[in-house]
Design a protein around this nucleic acid. Structure first.
Lengths: 102, 102
DNA sequence: TGACTCTATGTCGGAAACAACATATCTTGT
DNA sequence: ACAAGATATGTTGTTTCCGACATAGAGTCA
């Protein structure tokens, strides 16, 4: 479970004892994190395949090397939005994106 | 004209800005918007299939009715992150998410 | 070893996305 | 037609994500 979600739950007085909701949220959260990781891996693969450094990719994305490093590391501060935009910028098709999810 | 307003207009098909900006609206950007729209549509379908109101779904997501409305409308202020998390919360599998992209 | 390139990690100010609210508009049943 | 419920739209204050920068670590070659 990532920082943000945890904090949000805590601030809303999440009931620790509610097993059903706890399990549901965990499963969702796990699916979300796994999905992000899948995109991260594929981003790194694609970048290497294209023989680009993180710095070069960052320039294409109008971003920074550190952000690319965080993307590839699946850092919690990186959104799926940014990953998807980056993959599209590397020429990944919708079909290919779909394959990443399977 | 502020940035948010401009985005909102652009999402509704208004051309705001000069020709260069318009031409730079790349295939990549179009793909991103289309992808979001696909998820939006599927979210609405899933919600209706489950016979939930926007208000009820919002409560599940610990969000608000207006946010759900904006999600389903493909509003520019809604991230893919939120759409994905919502779809997962409605029980969509990774496989199903992948199918939405095809 | 030391210079050089590439990648990882921490931090910060500002931009974008968020939940929540208010209110308007659309829908549906009577 | 009217009311009630559901959905759409606009705004506000807060939180999260972003690019940018600094710097550390890892790998390579002379």
């Amino acid at each position: 479970m990532n920082r943000a979600k945890k904090r949000r739950l805590e601030s809303k007085g999440w009931k620790v004892g509610d097993t059903r909701e706890f399990l549901n949220l965990s499963a969702e959260e796990a699916a979300y994190v796994e999905l992000k990781l899948a995109l991260s891996k594929n981003l790194q693969e694609l970048r290497r395949q294209k023989k680009l450094t993180q710095e070069e990719l960052a320039r294409r994305l109008k971003s920074s090397q550190s952000r690319v490093a965080k993307m590839e590391a699946g850092d919690p501060s990186v959104s799926i939005d940014l990953l998807v935009r980056s993959l599209l910028a590397l020429g990944a098709s919708r079909k290919r994106l779909a394959e990443m999810l399977l």
